[in-house]
């Protein structure tokens, strides 16, 4: 009779498992290593380019010297503009969807549309922004057109994070408030929003990080290669960090000489992303502690 050597089978199983797990672990760490590699490379190369002058001076001598001040200002304007547009609309839309609409066709439809909006490639937003804001509405290449385009891009992100924040609010809070005789709006404003607030802010900060790095939507709606002075109104063109990096690393006149500037610009972009991420995580932790203490 054939006898199964149990020990042998188990040993083989164990060996297989050990090998596979090692492999998976190695790949997992490889992904993390990729991130660390990219970040350290940018930080290492960019650190020598960054100085106080670099972030406060205008570009000089065909982008080979000087700083990136106007690009930083441009990006700040664009982020502020797009958030002014996307944040109120996004938060209101999320409140409406989560607190007011009943499950059914409309909710499904809006949800589907939001999902679709999130899936549209950023260059298509650029095309749309150019055709509607720049040409049809006649804003021209301007901060206004760029901000609106970026705002549309950020909208689904804001809606999604806000909705998640609202969903996380325990229903008993709502029932208690309604039970005490508060109206729906009072409940939303006095009970639901304050509890969801930290998470909503976290979402806002993350979308700031996202918007500040987007290039494709601003290519044709606002970005300028070089402007001798800062924008003075929302109908002016502006320089922007991501576009600046793109231009000086691919199509500048002195690609080699402007490399240090490119590394520096890349580092500034990475710092913005790191900072917004850390801030968002920090806030999340801070608020969750506070809630627990109460």
């Amino acid at each position: 009779m054939y006898q199964i050597d149990e020990n042998k089978v188990t040993r083989k199983k164990k060996r297989n498992q050990k090998f596979v797990f090692f492999l998976f672990g190695a790949m997992g760490y490889f992904v993390v290593a990729l991130l660390v590699l990219i970040l350290t490379f940018i930080i290492y190369k960019g650190a020598s380019a960054i100085s106080w002058d670099f972030i406060t001076k205008m570009p000089e001598e065909g982008m080979t010297k000087g700083g990136i001040f106007p690009a930083i200002i441009g990006t700040l304007c664009l982020v502020a503009g797009s958030m002014l547009f996307a944040f109120p609309i996004g938060v209101l839309a999320a409140i409406y969807m989560n607190e007011y609409v009943k499950d059914g066709f409309i909710k499904k439809f809006i949800k589907q549309m939001t999902n679709n909006l999130a899936g549209i490639p950023s260059i298509v937003f650029g095309l749309f922004g150019m055709s509607l804001f720049v040409n049809k509405l006649g804003f021209g290449d301007s901060i206004l057109a760029g901000s609106l385009t970026l705002g549309l891009l950020a909208l689904p992100v804001v809606i999604r994070t806000t909705e998640e924040a609202l969903k996380a609010v325990d229903n008993t809070f709502r029932q208690a408030s309604i039970g005490l005789g508060a109206s729906k709006w009072q409940t939303t404003r006095r009970v639901v929003l304050p509890i969801a607030f930290p998470n909503i802010i976290t979402g806002l900060i993350l979308s700031v990080g996202r918007v500040s790095g987007e290039t494709a939507p601003i290519l044709f709606t606002v970005a300028a290669y070089f402007l001798p002075k800062l924008p003075t109104s929302i109908f002016d063109q502006a320089m922007a960090l991501p576009y600046h990096l793109y231009v000086i690393s691919t199509s500048g006149t002195n690609i080699e000489e402007s490399r240090p500037i490119a590394y520096g610009t890349a580092l500034v972009l990475v710092i913005i992303v790191l900072f917004t991420n850390l801030l968002a995580n920090g806030l999340r932790k801070y608020f969750s502690k506070k809630v627990k203490m109460n």
């Binding site: 992904v31 990729l34 991130l35 990219i38 690393s249 890349a266 991420n277």
Partner: peptide, 24 residues
């Protein structure tokens, strides 16, 4: 530790990836 790091990978702007690709 790993999860936020990997999410950070999603946050890096595409133009920075492009630049990294170009020089490395």
């Amino acid at each position: 530790i790993m999860k936020p790091l990997i999410e950070l990978l999603a946050g890096i702007p595409s133009v920075v990836y492009g630049f990294f690709g170009l020089v490395v």
